[in-house]
Design a protein around this nucleic acid. Structure first.
Lengths: 137, 137
DNA sequence: GTCCGTGCAAAGGATTTGCATAATC
DNA sequence: GATTATGCAAATCCTTTGCACGGAC
């Protein structure tokens, strides 16, 4: 499985790449930092250096296997690219990340870009707030 | 003028703060990095350390005098907070930044947050693309 | 065997911090 | 005069890079 994904992407199949791809696929939060991946590898006694984690993430992003997002606390998070674009809600208290898609917003964005003469490459939208749980806490 | 803004915000009036506020107010792009401000101060022979620039920007942000935005190339930019929220279009070629406001999008965001049980604190939306100029270049 | 991927340690950029001094209120 | 801001240099966080070695194809 991971094997196929890597080959299809034109990347050589190596242990670090397989392991990291697997971690990204299994992740429930869907949004891991390089450090998080590094820790998970360590937990499994996988000897992969942090430098390699970054290099693997970079090449995964280049071939479109994953997506990178920059949140306001200065670090990047990565998630498997399932093809369908989506945006994010981030809880400022607990860090919970929820995803959403909204066609109305997507369409408006295209109109806006067109008006300004921009050719869209990508876009990110992040709503920062307090999630239900933290409000009740 | 700057004097008043600072006093109203409960910040002590100091030369670095006045100078930095002035630079932010005068800036045409509306989006400066800490380094940019530091350079501008140097050009004017103002002896303000980079550390102070960061500290001043942080306190300005805390009192709501300015807004901070995190773009995808890893550094933050700052702009005067004129009260009205707006979002950004960024050119990946030349770095041009354009602003826009769209009520439809704003409203949809509120609905989405409400559905998910989030209390919105803030949000950012950035469209990355190629501007008209760079497309023709 | 060739080429690409990896580990290690060192470098890099952006931002923060500790401490002594200097300025504001 | 008490409190807060500043300068300087060192520290920190996240990420990248140079180089020699090891593994994939």
């Amino acid at each position: 499985m991971g094997d196929q994904d890597l080959k299809k992407s034109g990347l050589k199949v190596t242990t670090p790449r397989l392991k990291i791809l697997y971690i990204l696929e299994q992740d429930k939060t869907g949004h891991l930092r390089a450090e998080d991946i590094f820790s998970k590898l360590k937990e499994e006694n996988q000897d992969v250096s942090l430098a390699t984690v970054y290099r693997v993430l970079t090449s995964f992003e280049e071939v479109g296997l994953i997506k990178k997002h920059n949140f306001s606390d200065g670090h990047a998070v990565f998630e498997i690219n399932h093809g369908e674009h989506h945006d994010h809600l981030v809880c400022n208290e607990c860090g919970l990340i929820e995803e959403f898609v909204d066609d109305t917003i997507e369409k408006r964005q295209e109109d806006i870009a067109k008006n300004k003469g921009f050719k869209i490459i990508d876009h990110t939208m992040i709503i920062y707030g307090i999630c239900r749980n933290c409000q009740n806490g």
